[in-house]
Amino acid sequence: MWLVALKSSWRQSFQLMTRYMFNMVSGLVTMYIIFLMLFFGVKAVGGSALNLGDTLEGLFTGYVVWMIVIIGYQDLAYGVTNEAQTGTLEQLYLSPVGYRWLAFFTQLFNSLIYLTEITVMVVIMMLTTGKWLHLDLVSVFPLFAAVYAQALGLGFALAGLALVYKRIQAFFQIVTFGVIGFFFIPWDRFPWAKYLPFAMGRYLLEKVMAGGLRLWQLDGSDILVLLISTGMYLGLGILAFSAGESRAKAKGFLGQY
C-alpha cells in the first residue's frame, strides 16, 4: 500500500506541476533575483558586521542554506491551505496512509525537483559571482539532510497552525524571511543562538563549503548540537502538527477554508 501510495502521490505531483509550471519558474526567478540583490548589496556594504562570516562565500552558503530551508518547509506549510482551497484536504485525510505521509511525499517530490534546479542555479550563481564553493558531497550531504529535516519540522508546525488558523499565508511569508534572522544573531553575544533552527547547520555548512573542511574535521560538540536540535525541531514540528490536527477535528473544521 505504501509504495502504491507513494507512486500515486508522485505521479499526481508531477501532473500538477506540469499544470502549474508558471508558478514554479517564477518562484525560481524570484529566488535568483533576491540572491543577486543580497550578494551585490552586501558586497557594497561589507558583511562583517553580521554573523554571516566575513566572506562573500559565507553569504553565498547562507543563501543556499536558506533555499534548502524554504524548499524543505514551504510545500508542507502551504499544502494544508492549498488543499483546503481545492476542496480535497478531507479526501486526503481519508487515506489509510494518513495525511502527514501524503504531505511528506509531496514535499519530498517537490524538494527533489527544486534540488535539481537549485544545483543548476548554484552553478549559475557561482558563474555570476565568480565565487566557487567546495561541494564535497560526502561532507555536504549529511549537513544538508539535517537542515532539511529541521525545515520539515518547521513545515509540519506551520501546517498544524494552518489547520487551526485558516488564513495564515501572510504569516508564512514573514517566516520565510524571518528564518534569515536565525542566521544573523551573533553567537558570541548570544550563545543560545546556536540552538536556534538552522543556525548550526548553516555554520557548519559554511565551514565545509566556504572553508573547505571535511565532515570529520568539524568540531564534535558542534555536530552534537546539530543532531540534538535537528531531532528536537523535527519532533516538535510533528507534535505541533498533531495538536493542530486534533484541534481541527474536535472543532470539526478540518476541510474548511
Partner: peptide
Amino acid sequence: AAVLEGARNVYWRLTVWENIIFFAGIHGVS
C-alpha cells in the same frame, strides 16, 4: 470511502482519469 458534502472532492486541475488513479492509489489500489 466517501463523497463529502459541499467540497469539490477532486482536483479540478487534473483529468477524470488522473483523479481516479490518484485517489485509488492513495488507498492502496494500484
